[in-house]
Amino acid sequence: MLLLTAQSIMMGEDLKCLRTEERKMGNECIISVEGLTKKYGELMAVDHISFCVRRNEIFGFLGPNGAGKTTTVRMLVGLTRITEGKAWIEGYDVVRDYKRVRSVIGVVPDISNLYSELTCLQNLIFSAAMYGVPREKRLKRAEELLKFFGLWRMRDFKFKNLSRGLKRRLTIAAALTHNPKVLFLDEPTSGLDIMSRRMVWEKILELNRSGVTIFLTSHNVYEAFHISDRIGVINKGKIVALGTPAELSKRFSAKEVIEVAFYPKNPRESELIKQLNGALSVKLRKDHLEIVASDPTSVIEGLILYAKQNNLELSTLNLRGADAEELFLRIVGEQ
């Protein structure tokens, strides 16, 4: 049996092209970060990072747990003291002009931390009032947001009685009462089921289409590649890659993976690699061999030839591009 599949890593690509055409992309930085650093004692949580987030884009900040994503967001929004370096949002210094920065940003922390005894509506109105939304507009804005996030029926439910997904949505809504220009979302969908996750993605995309710049962190590769215009990959406090999803996959996944199994018996790894042109490595997995190839065509030809010469049958032959997760591991593993 011969099985040949090539899997694209860009599952959300079509969706994104559409959006990019729709909008006039400016190249101006709405967030600029220079040498931003956070030390906790000896630990370098964030290590001299610099990057720019462009107006109207969705910037995905991707990294494994403990990489420094939350610390970075917290420094940008003024919740954690900056050890070294500078950052500006809308031209305002995040430390010196913190009050002005706060009125142009909305922040969704990594936990849904609204007030549990207050209803959905009360939570939003409190937030609007604290952001200085004029009294007569608060109710209208709160109602708009409840409808936008599909929470209208729950408006008089206490926050503590909402499901996890609904809590997340209300927490995002509460960060939008003052129509911020930039929305920070720290792990917006972590811990949500598929349905809630999709709903949150849709809403993020919709907000972005209406002109809100999005800075989102995630440890979920699929999520970052699915909805971001550009991605910064952070690992151990350092930015290790920066670019559009397409650029990143091109740069890091030139190699492809071939899975092969022989009948009745797989040959030894060391023997097989000698016979193949364009194979970088051969590894024995449970019941098949995994070959990383720089030139997959000649490897596949080599495999067929090898089988013929040795009176073997190819029981599996499977070609796949490295998927997003492998790509991520490769980026993170490179240092």
Binding site: L79, R102, N113, M130, Y131
Partner: peptide, 14 residues
Amino acid sequence: RIGSFERLLLFPVS
């Protein structure tokens, strides 16, 4: 403890 306090620190107030 539950992290709600930091919400206040995000509002544009002193």
